[in-house]
Design a binder for these strands. Structure first.
Lengths: 229, 229
DNA sequence: TCAGTATAGTGTAGATACGACACTATGTCA
DNA sequence: TGACATAGTGTCGTATCTACACTATACTGA
């Protein structure tokens, strides 16, 4: 390693845009910073990458440590590295976005004394660093990706009704979809497995529950199938 | 900056996958490494990010220095940071991909003494670091992106024939397209401006030249237009 | 100069996919 | 048991996609 001393080196972080969904809104998980810079401000969960872990491992570790989340859908989003984006020194951040079913996780409980909360993406407080920009890019990516990759399911419980699924798409795409056309299209893809269970505890006729058949999806993809909403 | 000493820091590079096109093949620009590690091996053009320049600036600077390329289409691809991807120490690389019209640039002449050459993407030599993986990701991105963003033009001269444009798509997508359907579709989008010039020096009826109307495209996008091939 | 050749440029018809649209069925609750 | 809330279902007109073949034009070389 005789030559290594000449490399410029930058601090490296990961930040995660964690999306969740309640019945009305698309939500994003934010953490209130405990220390400077930006102490007290809300920020995306994230932190420094250790020198012996991969970027994705770092993102998953931070999600676990800061929000108690594990085994979530996680994909790299974009890398932000403008000089000056961190007031301390040059810090490059590799941003990831995650999709979780809010009901699966008790976020608050898992976060060691630090404030964590879900915010509607339409009503986010002022954020630390350039996290507002990161969130904006993540939202665009989500909107773009949801129509040609079956990732909407990640925001729902494993078993869900077709109406719930339709709502996922309506909220993300910000437009209404026709119920019959939506059902026809999604069912004809053959990615949903009908269960013999129905919704519980609703004050009206209960809807049938479906499950996303990931094995079937992978199999179809090999044959050239393209998901498209 | 009293707290900065505790950050882990990683060496940071950018690498560029530069795509070009000749009449037969999609090409990628490679540089033969002059120094260890991997001295003598082919690699993607790239290098260390300076602490005072943005990531994209670094990519453009490396393209200029190593390949004599400037003002090309350039977009961030993905960030690769597995520990061990560089034998020296932890090096994280932010990969970009670029699209250029090969004819516009005399690559060889501009590269100071180092070997630079275009290779067919189907016939690439063994590459340094994890650059084979980077190239693979870039190819997937290109194939995915070309159908819903008007980037095919970037691989052609400013004025081109419809047949040339069709060929771009056929080569990238690796399938043949119907001539009449292609022309109808692309012309109906209204993104091409017909010039009053025709092809020169061809041994057959000369085709009309068209130009991509970027202003028109941006204007249509604002009104909700989506390019889709 | 004319025959050959290489590509340019053009239209249609059948099949498929998409969007718009409204009523009946089933369960809960008061 | 009646009011309510949502589940679940089919059709038809329209737009879009695919497949397909011939004539026009310019250059080439004998």
């Amino acid at each position: 390693m005789a030559y290594s001393y000449e490399f410029p080196r930058a601090a490296l972080t990961v930040d995660c845009v964690v999306f969740g969904l309640d019945s009305e809104d698309l939500k994003v998980l934010l953490i209130q910073r405990g220390i400077d810079p930006f102490a007290g401000k809300w920020a995306l969960p994230g932190g420094f990458v250790r020198l012996d872990e991969s970027l994705e491992d770092a993102a998953r570790r931070e999600l676990q440590e800061e929000a108690g989340l594990s085994k979530v859908f996680l994909e790299q989003l974009y890398t932000f590295g403008d000089p000056g984006r961190d007031p301390r020194e040059r810090v490059v951040t590799v941003a990831y976005y995650a999709l979780v079913n809010i009901g699966d996780h008790n976020v608050k409980a898992a976060t060691d004394a630090r404030n964590a909360a879900w915010f509607s993406v339409t009503d986010v407080p002022s954020l630390a660093f350039d996290h507002a920009k990161v969130l904006k890019v993540a939202l665009e990516r989500l909107k773009g990706k949801v129509v040609y990759q079956p990732i909407g399911f990640e925001l729902l419980p494993r078993k869900f009704t077709l109406t719930q699924l339709q709502k996922v798409y309506e909220i993300i795409l910000e437009r209404e979809l026709d119920k019959r056309n939506f059902r026809r299209k999604i069912l004809e893809m053959g990615l949903l497995e009908e269960t013999d269970e129905i919704e519980q505890d609703v004050a009206h006729r209960a809807a049938r529950l479906y499950r996303f058949d990931e094995a079937k999806y992978k199999q179809l993809v090999k044959k050239g199938f393209m998901f498209e909403l």
